[in-house]
Simulated scan of single mutants.
Amino acid sequence: MKDSFYKYFNCNNKEELYLKLKQNSIDTHKLGKYLKFNQEKENKKIVIRGQNKLFDYLKNNIPDRDEVQIIMFNSNMEVLSDNKFPINTQFKDILDKSYVETANHVILLSHENEYNKLLRLEMDFKLFGYKIIDRIELDKNLELDSKNGIGNCQFTEEDIINGKNKNFKEEKKKINSKELHEFMDYYAKNELLGLNIKDDRKKIKEILKIANQEKSQEYFGLITYNKDQNITNIETSLFKGGIREAKIDPIIITPFLLHQDTDGLIIFHNHPSGSISPSQGDIQVTETIEKMAMRFYKNVEDHFIIGKNKTFSFREEFLLSNYSYERSSNKELSISEKEINLKEPVKNKIKSKEITKEKSTRNRLRSRGQER
């Protein structure tokens, strides 16, 4: 059984944990760093070019004396994975955790007296087609000894201690995921309430991404806002589905449209697969909810699809309806010609992708049948 998420932070429930987080309690520092990491992850790319960049990156990030560090890059020298392993870890286990599809360059780093093991690792990576950028050893004085002669860099014992500190991103695998998701929903509700859908748009997207990107099932939620465009209510789990979809019942959405203080909605759901591309079903659901809102002279401001690292916006991709309403006068407002012209091509492109994918699946199944 997994450990309690709340006990991990010396708390008993979501309310106590949220209060500690807002007070910047030392108990919640790891959680705060985790939230900040997920907030910045969409645009954050670490690129290492040249020895100074490498030294800066390794600072506070070097392995313990009985570990080997494997840093994997793509052709642009963007860090795609960085992991530390006990020096005797088998290569298959190292590659299993370190593997990223687009990675093709590797740096190996360990302490002295592990030359043979490091050389063996280098040969294994080369066998699988990886280019070794460097094989680095740290001597007893914590000075770099580089195979490629990248120069001298002095580290300290404090750097090892900092490098050993586990990130909550990894430790969260050991704790109760149900409690984690419960807290993230509670966190999102408290952080979103009162935000302005225009002025705080970027912040709203970030909070929704943080709260939903790690969920292993699909959840559909909605946000309501008033005539001042301030958020008045958040439902984070209105519908719950499986890995691929969540069935949406329009009747459940009706009470939110009936509320007199509601001027419009933002709807959102996550894609556990990590992809943010909308399906034809996502588009149809959005259009249905838009039509329902129009009957009450209310707007659908946006539909966000949340993946592992990014968020898709129906408004930004011109996939919302061609009309919105001024609630005070019930006046229909046309949107720009640009949005009208772009909406159909985008929808057709998505539909074309789904048809192609469906045909490919049928052909694959047909070929398997013939093989048998």
Rank of each mutant, 00 (worst) to 15 (best):
K44H: 10
F73Q: 10
L257W: 05
T361D: 15
N61G: 07
K343I: 07
K7P: 01
I335L: 15
K53V: 02
V68F: 02
K59I: 10
D159F: 05
D159P: 03
S98R: 09
I210T: 13
E206R: 06
Q51Y: 09
K198M: 00
G32E: 15
L208W: 04
N60S: 14
N270Y: 04
K357R: 14
F128M: 08
K202S: 13
K209M: 13
V300D: 03
D185Q: 07
K174Y: 14
D56E: 15
Y99S: 08
D139V: 04
G151Y: 00
K41Q: 09
S360V: 10
K353C: 12
Y8S: 07
S329I: 12
P63H: 09
K92D: 14
Y219W: 06
T89N: 03
G274S: 07
N60M: 10
N10Q: 15
D200H: 15
E101N: 11
H271K: 14
N10P: 00
K53W: 01
F312L: 12
I62A: 03
S110Y: 05
S25Q: 04
L108Y: 05
E122K: 13
H303P: 00
K291W: 06
D261A: 08
Y6M: 04
S98D: 09
K169V: 11
N341Y: 11
M294P: 02
A188Q: 07
Q217R: 05
I283D: 03
N196M: 09
S146N: 07
K310W: 01
I253H: 02
E170L: 13
E67M: 10
S328R: 13
I197N: 06
I87M: 14
D302E: 09
N348R: 15
K41F: 05
E301R: 06
E371C: 00
A103H: 04
I350T: 05
D134W: 02
K2Q: 06
I234H: 00
Y99I: 12
N88W: 05
N309D: 14
A103P: 02
D124P: 00
I160F: 04
T224N: 07
N212V: 02
L365W: 10
N76R: 08
M292N: 06
N233S: 10
I355C: 01
D27S: 09
G264C: 01
D249H: 10
H269M: 07
K14V: 07
